[in-house]
C-alpha cells in the first residue's frame, strides 16, 4: 500500500478526521486512483468495526467514522466509475412504517456502503409496498429493517408478508435491527436474522452475499 493509502487508512481508522478530505484531494492531485483511496477507506472502516467489537470504540465513534467516511466519499465520488461502487450486491434498507428513528439505520447504510454494498436507503416511516417496489426496481437480494418502537414491530411482518405476496421472498433475505428486536421478533414475523449493531449487520449481509 502506498504512502497516501496508509495515511488515509490511518486517519480514518484512528478517527483523526480533521484533514481527511484535504488529504484525499492531495492524493488525487498526486495521481492516486479514487478507487484505491476508496478501498483504503473501506479497509479503515473494517478496522473501525473490529475496534468497536473489541470494545475499544463505541457507537459515537462508529457514527463519527461514518460521517468522516461520507465526507471522504463526497470528495472521491466525481472520480469513481459505477463499477467501483456496490460490487458486493444491493441491499434495501429503511425504518419501518410508523417509526422514524434513523440513527441505527443510517449507520448500517454507511457501514454497508463502506463494505462495498450498493445501498438503497428508503428513509423512515416506510410502508411495506415501498420496500417491495425498491427490491424489484433494484434487484436487491437483501432487506434491512430498522425498528425502535415496540408498538411498530408488527411492521416487520408486513414487509415479510408483502415480499411473499409479490413472489420475491425466496430470493430476498430480511434482517432486522433496533431496540425492540429480539430473536422472538425475528421468529414471530418470519425474518431471517437480527443484527444487534451495524457491525453485526455488515457481517450478516456479507454472509448472505457470498
Amino acid at each position: 500500500m502506498g504512502e497516501y493509502m496508509e495515511r488515509v487508512k490511518s486517519a480514518l481508522a484512528n478517527l483523526e478526521d480533521d484533514d481527511l478530505a484535504s488529504l484525499l484531494r492531495e492524493a488525487l492531485e498526486a495521481g492516486e486512483e479514487a478507487a484505491d483511496l476508496l478501498a483504503a477507506m473501506s479497509e479503515a472502516m473494517v478496522e473501525v468495526g473490529e475496534r468497536f467489537e473489541a470494545g475499544e470504540y463505541y457507537l459515537a465513534d462508529l457514527v463519527l467514522a461514518g460521517e468522516v467516511m461520507k465526507d471522504g466519499v463526497a470528495v472521491l465520488e466525481p472520480h469513481l466509475s459505477a463499477g467501483d461502487k456496490g460490487a458486493k450486491g444491493t441491499v434495501v434498507i429503511c425504518t419501518v412504517k410508523g417509526d422514524i428513528h434513523d440513527i441505527g439505520k443510517n449507520l448500517v447504510g454507511t457501514m454497508l456502503s463502506s463494505a462495498g454494498f450498493q445501498v438503497v436507503d428508503l428513509g423512515v416511516d416506510v410502508p411495506a409496498d415501498k420496500v417491495v417496489e425498491a427490491v424489484k426496481a433494484n434487484s436487491a437480494r437483501a432487506v434491512g429493517l430498522s425498528v425502535l418502537l415496540t408498538t411498530m414491530v408488527g411492521s416487520v411482518g408486513e414487509v415479510v408478508d408483502s415480499l411473499k405476496e409479490a413472489g420475491l421472498r425466496d430470493g430476498v433475505k430480511v434482517a432486522v435491527g433496533g431496540a425492540c428486536v429480539t430473536d422472538e421478533v425475528v421468529e414471530r414475523y418470519g425474518a431471517d436474522a437480527m443484527g444487534r449493531d451495524a457491525v453485526e449487520a455488515v457481517r450478516i449481509f456479507s454472509g448472505w452475499m457470498e
Binding site: Y57, Y58, L59, A60, D61, G104, G178, A179, V181, D197
Partner: peptide
C-alpha cells in the same frame, strides 16, 4: 443502547 454505551 442494545449492545452497550453510546459513548465510551
Amino acid at each position: 443502547y442494545k449492545s452497550g454505551p453510546m459513548l465510551s
